[in-house]
């Protein structure tokens, strides 16, 4: 704390070591930058990030309330001007949804009769955790949000985050009471998806633009992709559950990218749901011992032979 106690008489004259310290710190932070290039997930950095999220969560929580209120007021002002069109569009959508509801009820009846069959095993239920968005990285390249649920509520790294429209992103850092959600538009975001009706699997890659693009990993050569097709999570890699709605295809950008218009609107995401989904595993609860034995035999067989 050398800088304490300096008054304006000394104010104009810089200290001798100032430039030396400055250059030293530039070197230190350059080294940090270089090392984070190679080990972004190093436990020290991870700990520091989680600590900062935890420490700032209360501050962010206090301010995000009024900020959200102001946003709502200003958002509503815009809504007053197109209330008629919105009303008309909503009525049409409602009529359409009623038809879907009838169909869904019918399907539910069929599914429940199938579930009555003895051979059927229900997939594990997802346990949603609800959270508020209290922070958002207003950075040109890093796209993430901070939500007010952490390890205390069983949030873990890798879990999917959705809002009422569709997939928002996935958890990358968890503090004890707050977590960071990496949005689909971040350059580091890679989410396995499939295109409904095209039999194509791919990766949704964030490009810091509003619309991420799909890079196809599996599918036949002559794939027909038309704008309007739905994009859903494929569950490949065993991190996100299959079938979460992501967006619709809007067409091709430059470099023949397949662009996806996300269902979720990041400017309005306020409340999210974290999906605590556990993939079905063979030795999940030990009740199915025969299956476990089968697997160990299979695993052991090549080693013996």
């Amino acid at each position: 704390m050398e800088f304490l106690g300096q008054d304006r008489r000394e104010g104009l004259g810089r200290r001798v070591n100032s430039r030396f310290v400055l250059i030293l710190l530039i070197l230190v932070s350059s080294l940090l930058l270089l090392s984070s290039l190679y080990s972004a997930q190093a436990s020290v950095f991870q700990k520091a990030r989680e600590g900062v999220i935890d420490a700032t969560a209360p501050v962010l929580a206090i301010f995000s309330g009024p900020v959200g209120y102001i946003n709502d007021v200003f958002g509503n002002v815009g809504d007053y001007f197109n209330v008629l069109e919105q009303n008309k569009a909503l009525r049409e959508e409602n009529a359409e949804l009623r038809q879907w509801m009838d169909e869904a009820l019918e399907l539910r009846r069929i599914v429940s009769s199938y579930e009555g069959l003895q051979t059927y095993q229900a997939p594990p239920d997802a346990q949603p955790i609800d959270a508020h968005v209290i922070g958002e990285a207003n950075d040109a390249f890093a796209r993430s949000m901070i939500v007010n649920a952490g390890r205390g509520k069983n949030v873990e790294v890798g879990q999917a985050v959705v809002d009422d429209n569709g997939l928002v992103g996935r958890i990358v850092d968890t503090g004890s009471r707050a977590s960071r959600v990496l949005l689909l538009t971040d350059i580091q975001s890679r989410v396995p998806v499939y295109i409904d009706g095209a039999n194509v699997e791919g990766l949704l890659i964030g490009k810091t633009r509003d619309k991420p693009s799909i890079s196809i990993t599996e599918g036949s050569d002559d794939i027909e992709i038309t704008p309007g097709q739905r994009v859903l999570t494929s569950g490949a890699g065993g991190v996100l559950p299959r079938g979460l709605p992501v967006g619709v295809i809007t067409g091709q950008g430059r470099n023949d990218d397949i662009l996806v218009d996300l269902y979720t609107n990041y400017a309005r995401t306020r409340i999210v749901r974290i999906i605590n989904y556990e993939f079905p595993t063979v030795d999940a609860d030990g009740s199915d011992e025969a299956a476990i034995q089968d697997e160990t035999v299979e695993a052991g067989a090549p080693a013996e032979g």
Partner: peptide, 11 residues
Amino acid sequence: LLTGGPLGLWA
């Protein structure tokens, strides 16, 4: 740390 970018960039 707060924006989740590479550590040291803004420093």
